[in-house]
Design a protein around this nucleic acid. Structure first.
Lengths: 230, 230
DNA sequence: ACGCATATTAATCGTTTGTTTAATTATGTG
DNA sequence: CACATAATTAAACAAACGATTAATATGCGT
């Protein structure tokens, strides 16, 4: 009687049972692979088989840890937006928020985006895109607190006389955010057609350019006020 | 012999055969429905059954007109980006391009986005998003020609002495595009957290604010030059 | 009128999908 | 060292998917 009569024909790469290396690395691997694949192809175009396979696991393990595909997706979002939440926490502290201005805010925000390169991509795909599954939560948790904070900063600097009083604070805040965020969102295009980068010295150069353009475009100067925008 | 023995049990809403109203309206309906659904839910999450159903047609008709799901998708993109192509044509004409400046370019671009509200959404989902199926084509057809044109406009105004000579023309062009495009991309969020709109008088107000911020942030003024950004 | 080309659908095919179940192996505890 | 618990897999399921085919009805040139 040959060996193959008793054993399965092909020795599988991994057999059932609790693994020896007892830690939560499997969860992390699944979340990381899910982030990469959902980002690269979209929720509907990624199968849990593929996620499990590329994470060195199986579909049933996803079910065990996250319940279903949407559960894995939600857990991935929760983990991936962590750095954004951390940045917001730092600004909500009234102690620190006192001596922050629009320019330093723009710098802080740009560096967070540069340090976590999947965040711009997630914002594009899950917030800005129609049907993005994270839009409502993003507005509630982040945009709904961060954007008014930006507007308030502009108002404060207007009262101080640093920024033009005839600016609509909401439009000015929107412009500051545009100048800060869009270059990261457009990186896949601009890196090809402009050769720009958003890391290393090029990042600092870009942040410097951007904050200066906003500052000089919005600052109060003698004999410059026109009819109010608001 | 009863009638039901010869006929199908239920008279279907529509039976096979070439329809009476003989025109290409079916194609248009399919393209429009596809645009709406692909935009709302993403390529992978939309079934051709649903597109056909909501367009009042059948899956086989999609196969007849477009070959397969990807063929319908590509035809939809081709049709939807028509206005962008038209705008680019207007600017590539050397006759008209002579007396256009950065500000008027920003205005033109903003109005095109406002007039075709699905264009920003498509740019988000099919160009900026990772794995966007239109990215390469968009770069080749639009961004690759439009962005250098923007850079050239900045350079021209620098030579004229209208814009600061120490600006990096590529970063300045990027800022102009950021200020123009981002507000449309972010509309789903900003309309909720800022209450901004991008139509009617609010659009003109936004364009006016944006062009002025760029102009005054980038214009040449006495005693203002610093070390070159380039 | 006739007949070929055009446009449409119902029905169905083979896959692939997300999910579930049952079996299997390791860990931790008393 | 037994035994409950935790973590994993192979296998299988029903449902849904994209695609195809054959039938069918209209339009149109002759």
């Amino acid at each position: 009687m040959t060996e193959s009569a008793r054993r399965p024909r092909v020795r599988p790469a991994r057999r059932p049972g609790r693994p020896a290396g007892g830690d939560a690395a499997v969860r992390e691997a699944l979340l990381g692979t899910a982030r990469r694949l959902f980002l690269a192809h979209g929720f509907g175009s990624v199968t849990i088989r593929r996620i499990a396979s590329e994470a060195g696991s199986s579909p049933a393990t996803i079910h065990y840890h996250f319940g279903d595909k949407l559960g894995l997706y939600r857990a991935m979002l929760e983990a991936a937006f962590g750095p954004v939440a951390a940045t917001l926490e730092r600004l909500d502290d009234p102690e620190r928020a006192r001596d922050v201005d629009v320019a330093s805010f723009m710098r802080l925000y740009a560096r967070m985006l540069a340090d976590n390169p999947w965040v711009p991509a997630l914002i594009v795909q899950e917030v800005l895109a129609e049907g993005g599954r994270f839009r409502a939560q993003f507005i509630e948790q982040f945009a709904g607190r961060l954007v008014p904070l930006f507007v308030e900063l502009v108002r404060r600097e207007q009262r101080r006389g640093d920024l033009r009083a005839d600016l609509d604070p909401r439009l000015a805040a929107l412009s500051a955010i545009s100048l800060t965020v869009f270059p990261f969102l457009a990186l896949p295009v601009t890196s090809r057609v402009l050769g720009v980068s958003a890391s290393g010295p090029a990042l600092e150069q870009m942040v410097e350019h951007t904050t200066r353009l906003f500052r000089e475009g919005a600052e109060a100067r003698a004999g410059r006020e026109r009819g109010s925008e608001a």
